[in-house]
Design a protein around this nucleic acid. Structure first.
Lengths: 353, 353
DNA sequence: CTGTTAGCGCCTTCAA
DNA sequence: TTGAAGGCGCTAACAG
C-alpha cells in the first residue's frame, strides 16, 4: 500500500504540499497509520492509543485536513443538513424566523439550505424536491398559501418536516404557530372597549392560514359583541387598498376603527389613510397584527399584536432536530402554540404617549 | 448482469416497490439498460437512441427516481451549491440581499447554504470552513466588521468568493458595493442646501465598511462647505444614543440637522428624538442612509439615501456564478459599484407632502 | 449507440 | 488497538 512494498524505512517524508485538498488517507500516510485510525481519532468512536492519536492530530494540523462533509453525507445516512423553505426573505417577519432557524441549526451542528417559495406551491414543491435530492436530514418550512400547499408526509417519505407560522392539511406534520385567532380577538375586543361599533378588517387573503385565523378572531369578537363584520381581502396593492378604504369611508356606515391582518396590509392601509387624509385615531382608530421595528415612530405610534417570530423559528427547529435524533416519524404531529402580546401605543385611541 | 444469465426472456417484471430510494441502477434494471445510459439520458451529454431514452424516461417516472445530488457532488467537482454568509437575517436590508441571492441562485440551478456571522469574524471563519467542507462551488458574503474579517483568497484556495455591501482587505476578491461615500456626500450637500451649518453624523462604528464610507462622504461634504464636523459613533443602543444626542443638543453649538449611518442608527436616533421631545424638521432636520418600508409613514416622513439591496445581491451572485463557470480565480477582483438615490421626503425640511 | 470498469472520501464490518 | 476490504450513487474514460 505504501510506495515501497519492502520497507519499514525512515519516518514519513516531510509534509507534502498537495494541490488538491488533503484526504483522510493523506493524513493516514503522513501519520504512518491506516485511514481507520484517522477516522477513529476524528469521531472518537473507538479507543486509539494516545501516542497514535497524537501523531494523527499532528498530521491533521500539518496538512490542515478537514473531513469532506459531502463524502460523509454520501456514505452515511445523516447529512447534518436541514432545509428551510419560506415565502420570502425580504419580509422582516420571515427574516426573523429564518435568523432563528439558522442560529439554532448552527448551535446543533447543522447546516442550513435555504429556499423561497414566493407563496407559490409549485415552487415550493420543486424546492422540497431539490432538498430531498440533497439528502437533507429534515425540513422546516413556512408553507405557501394553504389550500394549495402540498407539504405533507406523502411527499417526504421518512424525512421529518416541521411547519411553522402556518399549518398544512396533513395533520401528522409537526407544527409551531402563534395565537392568531385569540390575539386578533383580544385586539378587536380592545377596540370595542374604546367604544367602537363599526370595525373593519383589512387583510390579504383568507388563503393564507394566519390571515384567515386572524379574521376568524375578528369575526368572533364582533359576533360576541353583537356587531356586524365588515371585512376586505385584497390588500396586496396600494391602489386596491386605497379604493377599498375610500369606499368604506364614503358609505353610510363608515368604520370608526380598522384592524389589519399583517404588516403588509398595515403598510397599504397606512398609505391609503395618508392618501385619503384620514386622521388617526380620531376619524379612524387603527390596530394591526404583527409588530415591526418602526411601529413606534409612525404618526401616530401603532397599536399592534406582537408575535414572537424568532421564538417560533427556534421552537420549530428544535422540534425538528429532536425528530431527527429520535429517527422516527410520529403518527400524529406535535402542536405548539406560542402566545402573542398586545402592544398598546396610540393609534387605537389609547393615550400612552 | 441480469438476475438470469441465460435469458433474453420476457419484459422486465412489474415496477418493484422499493423501501429505499431508487437509485440509478434500479432505473437501469427496470429499463433493461446500463447505468451509463440512464446517466446520459439524464444529463444529455451524449446521444441515446430515442427508443432507449424513452424506456429510460418511463422507468424514471415509474420509480419516481431523482438523482442523488450528494453522490453527484461527491463524484464530480461541482456541487451546484453556493454559500451565503451575512451578519444577520433579521435586518430587512440583509434580508433583501439574501432574497436576491437565493433567487438568482435558483434561476441558475444552484442551491444555497446560508449562515450568519453576527458580525463576528471568528464565527465567519468557522462558517467559511464549514462551507468549504461542504464543497460549495463558490461563496457570496457580506463580510463581518472589516478590520477583523479574514475573508480572502488565502482562506479559500480555489473556491471563488464575491463579497458585497462591504469590501475586504484582500483586493483580489470580487466585490459589489454601492456609492456609499457619494450618496452620503450628496445628502449632506442637500442638508447644507437647506441652510444647515451644524450637521451631526450619527452612526454605529467606523469598523463597518459602509458606515465608514458614509462618514467619509459626510466629512467631504462638510469640508467642502467649510463646515466643522461633528460625529458620534456608537448608536448601537437606545441609551447611548439618547445620551449622545442630548449632549449635542445641550451644547452651545447644537446641530440643526442630523444624518444617520443606516437604519439601525436611524431607529435609535428617532427614538432619542422622541424621548427628548425634539421637533423634526424645525428644531432638527433629519436624513438617513438606507430606505425602509415604513419610512414614509413616520412623523414626519423620512428623507433617506436609498440603496438597491436586491440589485446588490443579484449582481454579486451573478458575478460568482460567472466565476464558477469560467473556473479560474482572477488575479485582480472586479469592482462593481451601484448607484444610490436620494429620496426626499419631509424630515430634511423639504415640503414635498 | 451502449456497456464495463474504476474510483471519488469516508466509515461499517470483519479480521488480526 | 489497529488495519484491510468493500461499497454508498454517480459519471469519466475507455472499450465494444
Amino acid at each position: 500500500m505504501s510506495e515501497d512494498g519492502s520497507g519499514k524505512k525512515t519516518k514519513p517524508a516531510k509534509v507534502p504540499t498537495l494541490s488538491r485538498k488533503p484526504t483522510m488517507s493523506d493524513v493516514a500516510r503522513l501519520a504512518g497509520v491506516g485511514t481507520m485510525t484517522v477516522s477513529r481519532v476524528l469521531s472518537g468512536t473507538a479507543v486509539v492509543s494516545p501516542e497514535t492519536a497524537q501523531r494523527v492530530r499532528t498530521a491533521i494540523e500539518q496538512l490542515r485536513y478537514r473531513p469532506n462533509e459531502i463524502a460523509r453525507a454520501f456514505r452515511g445516512q445523516r447529512s447534518k443538513t436541514i432545509g428551510l423553505i419560506l415565502p420570502y426573505l425580504y419580509d422582516p417577519f420571515f427574516g426573523n424566523c429564518a435568523h432563528a432557524v439558522t442560529r439554532v441549526a448552527k448551535e446543533n451542528g447543522y447546516t442550513v439550505i435555504i429556499a423561497t417559495s414566493n407563496e407559490d406551491p409549485e415552487t415550493e414543491y420543486g424546492e422540497v424536491d431539490r432538498m430531498l435530492q440533497r439528502e437533507v436530514d429534515g425540513l422546516v418550512a413556512i408553507p405557501a398559501r394553504q389550500h394549495d400547499s402540498i407539504l405533507g408526509r406523502n411527499l417526504l417519505g421518512r424525512t421529518p418536516l416541521v411547519v411553522f407560522d402556518r399549518l398544512v392539511a396533513d395533520r401528522t406534520v409537526d407544527a409551531v404557530t402563534v395565537e392568531n385567532l385569540a390575539g386578533a380577538q383580544k385586539m378587536v375586543d380592545h377596540l370595542i372597549g374604546h367604544g367602537h361599533r363599526r370595525i373593519a378588517f383589512m387583510g390579504l387573503s383568507r388563503d393564507i392560514f394566519t390571515i384567515n385565523e386572524r379574521f376568524l378572531g375578528y369575526r368572533q369578537a364582533m359576533q360576541d359583541a353583537g356587531l356586524v363584520e365588515d371585512a376586505f381581502f385584497g390588500c396586496d396593492s396600494e391602489e386596491g387598498t386605497v379604493a377599498a378604504l375610500k369606499q368604506k369611508m364614503a358609505s353610510g356606515n363608515a368604520p370608526t376603527a380598522v384592524f389589519t391582518s399583517n404588516t403588509l396590509a398595515t403598510r397599504y392601509v397606512l398609505s391609503a389613510i395618508l392618501h385619503l387624509g384620514i386622521r388617526i385615531p380620531d376619524e379612524l382608530a387603527f390596530a394591526g397584527f404583527d409588530d415591526f421595528d418602526m411601529a413606534e415612530f409612525t404618526a401616530p405610534p401603532l397599536t399592534v399584536v406582537r408575535q414572537p417570530a424568532q421564538q417560533m423559528g427556534e421552537a420549530a427547529t428544535k422540534l425538528l432536530i429532536e425528530r431527527i435524533a429520535q429517527g422516527e416519524i410520529p403518527g400524529t404531529g406535535s402542536r405548539v402554540v406560542l402566545p402573542v402580546e398586545l402592544v398598546l401605543r396610540s393609534s387605537c385611541g389609547c393615550t400612552n404617549r
